[in-house]
Design a protein around this nucleic acid. Sequence first.
DNA 1: TCTAAATATGGTATCGGTTACACATTCTGC
DNA 2: GCAGAATGTGTAACCGATACCATATTTAGA
Lengths: 336, 336
Amino acid sequence: MATIRDVAKLAAVSVATVSRVLNNNGYVNKETKEKVQQAIQLLQYEPNTMAKGLAGKKTETLALVLPDISNPFFSEVARAVEDVAQLYGYTVVLCNTDSDTDKEQTYIQVMKRRYVDGMLFASNTLRAADVLMLNKANIPLVVLDRAPANVPCLVVRSKNNEGAKLAIRHLLDTGCRRIAHIYGPQETATGKERLIGYEEAVRSFPWYSPTLMEPGQFSIQGGMAAAEKLMERHPDIDGIFAGNDLMALGALKKLQQLGIPVPGRVSLIGFDGIELTRITEPELSTIAQPIYEIGATATRLLIKKIEGVQLENETYECEVELMARGSTRGNAEAGR
Amino acid sequence: MATIRDVAKLAAVSVATVSRVLNNNGYVNKETKEKVQQAIQLLQYEPNTMAKGLAGKKTETLALVLPDISNPFFSEVARAVEDVAQLYGYTVVLCNTDSDTDKEQTYIQVMKRRYVDGMLFASNTLRAADVLMLNKANIPLVVLDRAPANVPCLVVRSKNNEGAKLAIRHLLDTGCRRIAHIYGPQETATGKERLIGYEEAVRSFPWYSPTLMEPGQFSIQGGMAAAEKLMERHPDIDGIFAGNDLMALGALKKLQQLGIPVPGRVSLIGFDGIELTRITEPELSTIAQPIYEIGATATRLLIKKIEGVQLENETYECEVELMARGSTRGNAEAGR
DNA sequence: TCTAAATATGGTATCGGTTACACATTCTGC
DNA sequence: GCAGAATGTGTAACCGATACCATATTTAGA
């Protein structure tokens, strides 16, 4: 492979000049520039990113840390992150943590050694100590959803509480009179805030009872199990708000298996707005977060931070939107 | 950040010795080793991957090139790739091509500059010229599904033709007498081979007609449109084999919208075995590829190749398996 | 006891870039 | 016509590792 010195020799200039041409900085005469560019062409020269990174202290690499890329929510985020990164000339490194603190630690270590320019965490296992350490190591980071308490860092998130209330209001508006909630892990901000939103929205009703809440681990399986328990416990439930779409999908499946018409007897709404909510029949109503936008915004912020732009806000909150579709009463024909 | 020289100084040895300790090669006295390790601890030393890559010609990085990470098939592959890579100490860089040759070219360029140790292509846009170029540049690669014709390279794939026949046989076995096919893009080996498998399996039947085949672009939308057209054209269709699960999912949705009972009036089977086939009611019968295994195997092969192991086979074919579930007749209770 | 092999360690060139600094030439404005 | 800024280019130190080679000491075998 040709090196910068080969190019310099062929173009009969110094390596410094070639470097200037490559990076388009400093003064270079127009003809010299052309000469150099010809040499580059001729030699099929490609600058070595390793050498560049070593000398220039920039690797043009971002680390994306998430629980599991095969979860559709995260793969949509990942897609957005990569798109924006690519646009700005950055490369994305993928890290699956399975929400395991040890794995996360290992990745942080490895990414530090790799001198990634920045890190994006879509993971609830991030610890305050890590944030401080990364700050000290001068590695910019952006956190999706939630940062550890008491440490300053950039966060991009959605209005979970508001979204939960939106969901409940929609169920009430479409005639539901007894609404259950399938909630996500309470270690996650997402799971917790949506649960709180639900409670705040329903606790003043006479029918409210804590037994209307059931955990579903943010998974399809969990959603199925929770729906089954809920319907057994309270056969008169006529609305279910699931804390994310996967659990809602599971609940839908279980209800269909039990022969309970959706939305005929039970209305169902999820949260997130992943694509999969459109593949079922009926389509799933949901509180949509702008998933792609969240990933894209987070990445743009991260890159700004890397490039030294001062950012005022610490937390960026994204709006959520009610998608009323077939799984909630009165919307059987919606979304077609 | 501490460097190897800081460690050397603190431990009162040379950098060469520290390097030996780090890489566990060459002769090092036991006590010296401990001294060095203590210094490493004390300084919280982390070797700089850039420097290592530059000096040692190994970056411990793999590039994963695929059309779109948000497609569940590919995100499952990606998960497998990253798991295995992580296990062997490699880092995975993500590249979404959208099956766009230009984008792919750009990525190949960028990855060459980054001196990735190997590349994994799960993309049908790879051109013969690229393979040759990568060979010349001495960058190992593994291709999922299909390599360009006439170039030697490692391929990991599934038995598509056989799988298609398995699907048809299953539909016939469960009583179908007029089977349609929704096929994928014919530029892809996957799409083509499954279509051929279908044709070979059904062309001897009196009911066979080319109008029983309809393209569906491997997408949910495409599957819906195709199912609609097919049912309009041949209302007596009682079985549909879709060339992948996404199209089958789309077809299922459309059939349900049209009020056509599945599997009551039409049996439906997909191909791939993605997780999503389990979220519908009825669950989708499918010809399952071992998706995770494919990704994992491809990665293991790639790493072997990187580490200089001679590999005999050029093509590794994976077995496919019939998953008879609710969407095909006689299996309404299956999978519960 | 002598020699060759095994063990242990250090010095330093090298990988392929960036960039500070030095030096030369050409513009400008007064 | 000249000072000082703007333009243009080269030299070489440096980034932080690896690894080749040299050298010194121990060990083992004959």
